[in-house]
Design a protein around this nucleic acid. Structure first.
Lengths: 226, 226
DNA sequence: CGGACTTTGTTCCGACGTTCACAAGCGGTT
DNA sequence: AACCGCTTGTGAACGTCGGAACAAAGTCCG
């Protein structure tokens, strides 16, 4: 139940993992530009974080820089990719080929970031057979088959909200252990399954709140607090 | 520069604000179902959080429940909407009408959640003039005009990565203070402007990392940590 | 009318994350 | 070969966040 205190197993905080992914993106850009090395200050600036925090994040992977010089771009890039588990491409399925699903499936950037959609599923027969991003859309009934076929463990849900939970249940039963959910519902999953919720409405409402706070200070427009 | 310590102004943590938006979504569903009251336990279960944490979140708004009974659904819903600043609809602009931008602009759910896209902008002349979700797409050159026209303070960026920063700069110059960015780049903004980054690649990579960790525990496959 | 049960609101505490500041180490230079 | 400047890596303090236990308060029932 409790995590082992094994000092050899460095536990990496989830917040750090998310930032490592950002560093990896920045490093890929630097590598494409032909840069050989970077300092923590420059990397931190490009990633929008504190330099000391960045160094601490990287230190979870063990020493990977050279003092007085900085970090070797290609080596650090590969090390981050290995730590994140995207060294070789990982297979994903995407359920729900509406506008949003089609947009995600057609985005070429995932291939270069270590992910490939091996299954695109939709319940609408009119959409089945379409080719999006080089993959053919299959009926949602093939869900279990596709997951088993490729040993998929990661799924993206872009279905309408009312069916998201049932799709999620089927995915979990089929063996999927990690889900990104774009439907505006909170998915109920058993322990051991990770869900990351992406909800534009929530993002907008957080901004609206911050905006409102700023509005009081900047504009001076009266805002009645009950 | 520093926040005022005014005891009347309850400072609400950003993490709490994000959860309040989730509670609001759940409450709207309950209201549509005709429910009159809810307990913190039921709300917390539906939102996927701890009941005690939920009560603490709500307590930032002041007492809003009845002991021994629970929370009145319509009253709490309205109170949350007011706290988040989405009591009346807020105007937003969306820049970049590719697949993703079109998907977001066409999603009807934002209207019911207090947001309306009063401006849809794209650099491609072939897309200008299209009607998405009832709004006509205008050239990106109209950006400053549209923002000023409606007093827009919130923007959504769904452009290709290379132009996201320049679009962001123009938005900020035009007066936008809150931005949701879907482009896979870290936007540089002056102080006082809030950016919320949404990056599916990052979400997937975090899941890949967690997935990999689970794989070590379950499968027992050796993973060499240098 | 009083007591007991239910549910909220609050307080306390432990853990986590972030930041600052300093020591350690490497390269370049004289 | 030794020194100096630069950058990494780490240790410690601070603030924040999340969870659990407890007290307050209102309702329902006998």
């Amino acid at each position: 139940m409790s995590e082992s205190r094994d000092p050899r197993t460095r536990v990496i905080p989830e917040a750090t993992v998310a930032r490592l992914a950002v560093y990896l993106r920045v490093l890929t850009g630097l590598a494409d530009a032909g840069r050989a090395s970077v300092s923590s200050g420059e990397l931190a600036s490009a990633a929008g974080v504190n330099p000391a925090g960045l160094r601490k994040d990287l230190s979870y992977l063990g020493p990977c820089g050279v003092r007085g010089v900085g970090y070797a771009v290609p080596a650090l890039r590969e090390r981050l990719a290995r730590a994140l588990g995207v060294e070789q491409s990982r297979s994903c399925v995407l359920v729900g080929m509406g506008n949003l699903g089609s947009a995600l499936a057609g985005y070429a950037g995932f291939g270069t970031r270590g992910f490939s959609f091996v299954g695109l599923l939709d319940a609408d027969p009119a959409r089945v057979g379409d080719v999006v991003g080089g993959t053919v859309v299959r009926p949602v009934d093939d869900l279990e088959e596709v997951v088993a076929e490729h040993g998929v463990t990661i799924a993206v849900v872009t279905t309408p909200a009312p069916v998201a939970q049932s799709v999620c249940d089927r995915l979990v039963d089929a063996g999927v252990r990690s889900i990104v959910n774009f439907a505006p519902v909170t998915l109920q999953v058993p322990a051991g399954v990770d869900v990351r919720q992406v909800d534009l409405s929530v993002e907008l409402q957080v901004l609206a709140f911050l905006d409102q706070q700023k509005g009081v200070q900047v504009v001076g427009e009266q805002v009645v607090l009950p």
